[in-house]
Design a protein around this nucleic acid. Structure first.
Lengths: 248, 248
DNA sequence: CCCTGTCTTTGATCCACGTCAACCCGGCCC
DNA sequence: GGGCCGGGTTGACGTGGATCAAAGACAGGG
């Protein structure tokens, strides 16, 4: 049995992680825990897993067992319907959680695909529930994380339901910018990890429309864009454009 | 102080409810609990509240304290942005929960408005967290409910991002039908509680487009519709229309 | 009963975005 | 180097749904 365990560990590239040392403390689950509680959490998050660019972290239909905290890298999640429709439901970066949608049906309801080489912590969900029955603050924080996901989704529904193409792209870029900033990267200059097609799928637009909107922003001096390299020149302008109501 | 409490109770039209007797057991939180556990839950859900048609159950910005289980009636939730945009984010019926979006910021992030005279059970959230630390199955069920909300939102994003007007309306009607059926009502014949405008807001369409789609469905013999009275004549036809991919 | 306001339907026109198609650019392999 | 291939850009054109406008249903109130 110990041999089997060793094999399994190799397959998953298990590394002992330590939440107590992780620089994502603020973004991920463990927040406001004391030393003893952090130690318990370290034991919970026992496996780290690498996912190469283009590979699936999980697929829709697979049994749900763990949620994942992204240590580094970039992911997209998408839903694929039998009739051929598919839609990117989100882009996730370091410190964010993946897999919350799987709890309800005990099956993953979407695909999670790495957009660059990434590393995640697997958090066995039943363990998380056990621990959050012991640690009040962990429980509450987890509930907040789930709720924030719902609020985020409402924002996307708003975007898809009421905004026009350029507004959607502006909102998307400002959101990315703000998330990079929160992680200590430049909010003004970054590389897009996703293709025009993936942006379009997320925003409910065709890739040509996304491309045209980028060009337009560039013409108007709002940003400099070359392929996937984006530099925001006029944040206020983007923000104004985004909230430009179409009717009174 | 006891006088104050009495006043507060009157204001909220408190009635002693009993989850153990409630006919929504299957849909709401308490599922698979034993008698002792149900008793604890009865104590948790101590206040019932009536909301008249058109009134707010809560408003965006109000402090979040409780989630609400709908005992009877019908609600919509909507988000209103400063620039004048607004969007209906969902319609909720008996047995469903309201207010989950408020957990993250400890503030309600949307408005909940009754579309007909309704009754809800208020569930103080901190009590729910406390109880779910004691009752494993309650905790797990609550997590599933939150997760289901996320999955539902992904479905709406899919609808808004990839479907055309008639597909959206078909999906909407089939969803309503199925939820009425789950509650023991006719899946084929029901009264819409919301206006064309509200349907349009939810589906990312203008009210005229919704009205035209209804007329078209009627012409094609898929349903009979008169104002808010809807009778579905050809479920399979609607389903086929809904999943009619626009391109391969 | 008529009057009023709200919701719904229907028609005519417009426009934002999708569609189709050509071309470009950078990376990779031979 | 040249050819290939997967993105990305750009142009020309078509169309689904928005917009504008008018009129019909229905409920409530005098």
């Amino acid at each position: 049995m110990s041999a089997n365990v060793a094999t399994a560990r190799l397959a998953f590239e298990v590394v002992k992680t330590a939440c107590s040392n992780c620089n994502l403390r603020e973004l991920c689950l463990p927040i406001g825990l004391d030393a003893a509680e952090l130690k318990k959490l370290d034991e919970l998050v026992s496996t780290r897993r690498r996912v190469k660019r283009g590979d699936h972290l999980y697929r829709a239909g697979q049994a749900f067992e763990s949620i994942y905290a992204i240590r580094s890298g970039f992911f997209k999640t998408d839903v694929l319907v039998e009739d051929g429709r598919d839609q990117v439901t989100g882009f996730q970066m370091a410190g964010e959680l993946l897999g919350l949608d799987g709890i309800s049906g005990e099956i993953h309801s979407c695909n999670a695909i790495a957009l660059e080489d990434s590393e995640v912590c697997a958090i066995p969900f039943s363990h998380l529930e056990g621990l959050s029955r012991q640690i009040h603050t962990l429980q509450h924080h987890f509930h907040k994380v789930m709720s924030r996901e719902i609020v985020r989704d409402h924002g996307v529904m708003m975007l898809l339901g009421t905004m026009r193409a350029e507004e959607r792209l502006a909102a998307f870029l400002l959101n990315l910018s703000q998330r990079f900033k929160a992680r200590g990267y430049s909010p003004a200059e970054f590389n897009l990890r996703m293709s025009r097609d993936e942006i379009g799928s997320y925003l409910g637009l065709k890739l040509e429309t996304v491309s045209r909107a980028f060009s337009r922003f560039q013409e108007e001096g709002l940003l400099a864009v070359h392929q996937r390299k984006v530099r925001i020149l006029n944040t206020a302008g983007l923000r104004k454009l985004m909230s430009h109501q179409r009717n009174g």
